[in-house]
């Protein structure tokens, strides 16, 4: 097993507030890892640090260099690449994609266009190419439409292709966010509360979708989630955060019976 993400002692301070405090985390190849914790524990801030939205105060984040799939990363002789402090678009180009807790689609564009924007960083047409519609850019464009349709079909949104993103039902919008993230061709997918606001039926579908993606797309997945049923059924490894600190880590069964975790969620037990 090799690590596709290795975070060492990551901290993010906002003035005196330690939103993320010395958190370390590892994601192995093809693993689904969950990050849970009460509201305000710093999970989303942690995500933002990984994706480059925030510059971490201290700590390191490593991914395998030339981590693009197909590359052979040999056992322990891993060559790694530091990505902390890089710009978000560079990190996305490296192969880390994310979705958002509150849906952030390009509302006034069609579903297909949303996907096409996701492909942006894998294409190269510039201003000149666009104006003169060179052979290369025409070829790229038709490939892009083809690829984007394929991604939509994979997620099951092909019937919505030419609808405005804002007109989609809620569950479909969540799916579209995942599809758009997939379009950037990632090896690691960060999902920020993918099941928020979904009904049990939709959550079940999502569960299936995530597993399917992991298996067919050769992805590793790190997700933040509050729906414990989903977390327990999906995740192979769970990290728990509270007040910016990592308080527990382990398999679902270990986490379920961890005293600290129960305290964080339900409060301390008072001896009478």
């Amino acid at each position: 097993m090799t690590h596709v993400l290795e975070v060492n002692n990551l901290s993010k301070h906002f003035g005196g507030l330690k939103a993320v405090d010395e958190v370390s985390l590892k994601v192995e190849k093809n693993q689904i890892v969950a990050l849970i914790g009460p509201n305000g524990a710093g999970k989303t801030t942690f995500f933002n640090c990984i994706t480059g939205m925030y510059k971490p105060t201290s700590g390191e984040i490593y991914i395998p260099s030339s981590a693009h799939r197909d590359s052979h990363i040999t056992g322990e002789g891993h060559r790694t690449k530091a990505i902390h402090g890089l710009n978000p678009h560079v990190i996305t180009e490296c192969g880390i994609a994310r979705t958002f807790q509150n849906i952030r689609l390009f509302q006034n564009m069609t579903v297909l266009e949303n996907i096409m924007i996701g492909r942006h960083c894998r294409l190269s047409t510039g201003i000149i190419g666009a104006i003169f519609r060179t052979r290369k850019s025409r070829l790229e464009e038709s490939e892009l439409i083809h690829d984007s349709h394929e991604i939509l079909t994979k997620i099951g949104l092909e019937n919505y292709a030419n609808e405005f993103a804002k007109n989609l039902p809620y569950g479909a919008q969540r799916k579209l966010e995942i599809a758009r993230a997939l379009a950037t061709d990632p090896f690691l997918l960060l999902l920020d509360e993918p099941a928020a606001g979904m009904n049990p039926q939709e959550t079940k579908e999502l569960d299936g979708l995530i597993v399917k993606l992991r298996d067919t797309e050769d992805l590793s997945i790190l997700l933040i989630e509050h729906d414990m049923n989903l977390v327990m059924s999906l995740a192979e490894n769970i990290y728990v955060m509270d007040y910016g600190k990592l308080i527990a880590q382990g398999t679902p069964t270990q986490i379920k019976s961890d005293k600290k975790v129960i305290e964080a969620y339900l409060g301390e037990e008072i001896d009478a």
């Binding site: 939205m53 978000p88 996305t92 958002f100 390009f106 266009e113 942006h120 960083c121």
Partner: peptide
């Protein structure tokens, strides 16, 4: 147009 719609999402989609 992505930039017009949502700057943060644009950033995370790998657009400079």
């Amino acid at each position: 147009q992505a930039l017009r719609e949502d700057e943060i999402a644009t950033k995370s989609m790998g657009i400079n």
